[in-house]
Simulated assay, not measured.
Amino acid sequence: MGAESSTAMNSDGNNKNVETQVVLNVYDLTPINNYMVWFGFGIFHSGIEVHGKEYGFGAHDFPASGVFEVEPRSCPGFIYRSSIVLGHITMPPTEFRTFVENAASEYHGDTYHLISKNCNHFTDDISWRLTGKHIPGWVNRLARLVMAP
């Protein structure tokens, strides 16, 4: 289930985007998720797929963006679980690229925190900005439970 888009040529020969899907790709961090999901829990990584590329957020030790781009549904180190269509946008690929680069400036690798600013917080933020919808609650449930008073 990949993000599909259709394009049309405008009068000066440049592509303009008509519509593309915003897809949440969810991964298991551990095979134990196969048992934990029956109890409503799991430890997940997620990425946002738009225009045939997937964007995620990860940790590193530098004050530079932790946002990265991978081929959809193939994030290294994780076990692909499922894809969820979050909505559709009409944003040309070049405009979307600028959008992601701007958002990435808010997600430095050295600010990653497993509970308060993880990959799922990133995908939720991007989904909200693009579609006005949050990612499904179960994707980041464990972090929310740990943060609860």
Rank of each mutant, 00 (worst) to 15 (best):
M1S: 13
G2T: 05
E4L: 09
E4Q: 08
S5N: 07
S5M: 12
S6V: 10
S6E: 13
T7W: 05
N10W: 05
N10V: 07
S11L: 10
S11R: 11
D12S: 13
G13M: 14
N15F: 11
K16S: 11
K16D: 06
K16R: 13
N17H: 01
E19M: 10
E19P: 00
E19Q: 12
T20S: 15
V23G: 04
L24V: 08
N25Y: 10
V26H: 07
V26N: 09
D28P: 01
L29I: 07
T30W: 07
P31V: 08
P31F: 01
N34L: 12
Y35S: 10
M36L: 15
M36C: 04
V37G: 00
V37R: 15
W38K: 14
W38I: 03
F39S: 11
G40M: 09
G40H: 12
G40Y: 10
F41Y: 13
I43L: 14
I43H: 11
F44M: 08
H45G: 11
E49C: 09
V50R: 07
H51S: 04
Y55G: 05
A59Q: 15
H60A: 09
D61I: 07
D61T: 09
P63L: 04
P63I: 03
V67E: 01
V67F: 00
F68K: 06
F68S: 09
E69C: 14
E69Q: 14
E71Y: 03
E71H: 10
R73N: 14
R73D: 11
C75F: 06
C75K: 14
C75E: 14
F78L: 06
I79R: 15
Y80A: 07
Y80W: 09
R81F: 08
S82V: 05
I84Q: 12
V85Q: 08
G87K: 04
G87L: 03
I89T: 04
P93H: 03
P93N: 02
P93M: 03
T94A: 15
T94E: 15
E95S: 11
R97T: 10
T98D: 08
E101Y: 00
N102Q: 13
A103R: 06
A104C: 01
E106N: 12
E106M: 02
Y107S: 02
H108R: 14
H108M: 03
H108N: 14
G109L: 01
G109E: 00
G109Y: 01
D110F: 02
D110K: 08
T111N: 12
Y112Q: 03
Y112S: 04
H113R: 12
H113T: 05
I115K: 09
I115P: 04
S116T: 15
C119D: 02
N120E: 09
H121L: 02
F122D: 05
F122I: 05
D124K: 09
D125E: 12
D125C: 01
I126Q: 03
S127H: 02
S127Q: 03
S127G: 07
L130G: 05
L130T: 01
T131Q: 06
G132P: 02
G132Q: 05
K133R: 14
K133W: 00
H134M: 05
P136C: 07
P136L: 10
P136F: 05
P136E: 07
R141Y: 11
R141W: 11
L142P: 01
L142F: 13
L142T: 13
A143N: 06
A143K: 02
R144K: 11
V146W: 07
V146M: 07
M147D: 11
M147G: 06
M147F: 01
A148H: 08
A148D: 06
